[in-house]
Simulated scan of single mutants.
Amino acid sequence: MSPVLPVSVVVVAADSGPTLRDCVRRVLACNVPLEMILVDNASGDGIPQAIARAHESDARLRVIYNHANLGFGPAVNRGVAQAHGKSVLVLNPDCLIDNATLQRLIDTLATHPRAGVIGAVVCDENGVPDPASYRRDPLLQRSLNTMFNRPGEGVNMEGPIPHALVEVEAVSGALMLLPRRVFDYLAGFDEDYFLHCEDLDLCRRVRDASYKVMLAGDVRVLHGKGSSSRHRPVFVSRHKHRGMWRWFRKFDPQARKPWVSALVWVGIWTHFLLQIPGQLIRLAKRKATREDANA
């Protein structure tokens, strides 16, 4: 029987680029007893295989290779199914943690028995927090207020993020620590999402199960931008909009009104179509820049 560890760190890769190496290295440098499960969604860059070879002597690391891109939530669920930790840390491949951060999160979870998920403030390289760290359910009225910069309650919380542990509606899926028992009780991520909004879905179901979603506002974690999204922006955007539609249909009371649902469906997919030209232009510019650099 495998020993029960304080935490299992689950990372999903999908052509995530060199930042994945740093993510794995930082996790394995922690002194906290842990296991790390890297779930590869059919990456073509060879980096998960290289990581497995580089750390083949470290029994804490296990790599699971999927033969297709299953999506984020399904891949996490398959990783957790093989985990042995009392808690599960879902970590993006472009998030860099250290031992103090990990220990702080584990201690916080241990001292708050009604916490169903704990997040941290994910920041860019300049230390600017991502608004997704501290947000509300994306109900229709809130989403419209945010989209059109209208007064009233929006999706993102207003003002600076408190440097304290606070109860919130949702945290960023870039870093989520959950008790294993809660993850199992909720049956993990909803696998009908492919990418985006599954973290909002999980946070909502945590609260519906009478657990708390909490943000450790004093824990700041560098969240870079890996290559998974940058090299296929239309693919990612399509699934993001699909996730928005699924969340609306599951949780927003306005979805019970057929005419509102129809308008929301048209709005979501019109927004997706309008973004495509700009995404393709930016992608072409990045490719041209790389070619010039390699010339």
Rank of each mutant, 00 (worst) to 15 (best):
P138E: 14
M147K: 12
L109V: 02
L96F: 15
S87D: 06
D94F: 03
P113W: 12
D130P: 04
Q49R: 11
V155L: 06
S43F: 10
R136W: 15
P138S: 10
L140W: 12
G79C: 06
P138R: 06
D58F: 11
H84T: 05
I47L: 03
L140R: 09
Q141S: 08
G46F: 04
N66I: 00
V128M: 00
Y65W: 13
G152V: 10
A132H: 07
R104C: 03
P131G: 09
V88D: 02
P33F: 00
N69A: 15
L105A: 10
T108P: 06
S143C: 12
P93F: 04
P74S: 01
L109P: 03
G44K: 14
P151T: 02
P74E: 08
A120H: 02
R114D: 13
P113H: 12
L102H: 07
I37K: 00
L34M: 07
V128N: 09
L144W: 05
L109F: 05
F72K: 05
A115G: 08
N99D: 15
Q49K: 14
H112P: 02
R150Q: 09
V80S: 02
S43P: 06
C30S: 14
P93R: 03
D58E: 14
A52K: 14
L89E: 04
A68D: 08
H55G: 01
P113G: 11
R78G: 03
A120E: 11
N149M: 14
H55I: 07
